[in-house]
Amino acid sequence: MTAIERVIRILLGGALLAAPLAHASDDLIDLRDAPPVRGDAVAGKAKAAVCSACHGPLGVAVVPTFPNLAGQKADYLYWRLVTFKRAGDADSPMTAQVAHLDDAAMRDLAAWFASLEPAAGTNGAAGMPGATIYRDGDPARGVPPCQGCHGLDARARVGADDAARARLYPVLRGQHAAYLADRLEDLATHPPHTSTAHVMAPIARTLDAASIEAITHWLEAGAP
């Protein structure tokens, strides 16, 4: 055996030992080609009794820091539950809630809340400052128009037919302003490890307090 061959054998042996050590799992939740979420809304209704304490019996929360779930996208709701489960954040009230939910239960709940009538919203005016940012974005700061993903009417019906985006991006219309502000802050500071969070987190960081205030109040107003 020549010296080169000896060296090669040693390195190969070392490499094969190192291979399992080199393996690292990437726990990104890749939603880019996630299949559609289907669940049984009737079964979901049965399991939703606990949820109504915070989120209201018809999915419209009373406390403004809790989100309205009625009429929200099923895919969005399902993956939100999944991220709560994965994150296991002790500070979040949802962690305990999802702990005993299995995958089927999460799908069913998502389907149930998606089937509910969305919140009507308060009376708002198209002239609210938030409307401008929502519709046109803020090019000077690098904020894209929210309507691009969340739809012109904030119901996340995007212009052309684009299946994945239409399913995953949440309805914002009629959502509580306080909740939205909290959510944006969460995204800015400790976003979940999903592919869509990679898009929203930098946007959330770019939005300043005044913009957030304007947008969230306009969304709550539910104005078109």
């Binding site: 803020d138 090019p139 000077a140 700061r141 690098g142 904020v143 894209p144 946007i203 770019t206």
Partner: peptide, 12 residues
């Protein structure tokens, strides 16, 4: 035109 920062927001 909207500027690079707006583009990057989604196309990071």
């Amino acid at each position: 035109a909207v500027g690079e920062r707006t583009c990057i927001a989604c196309h990071r």
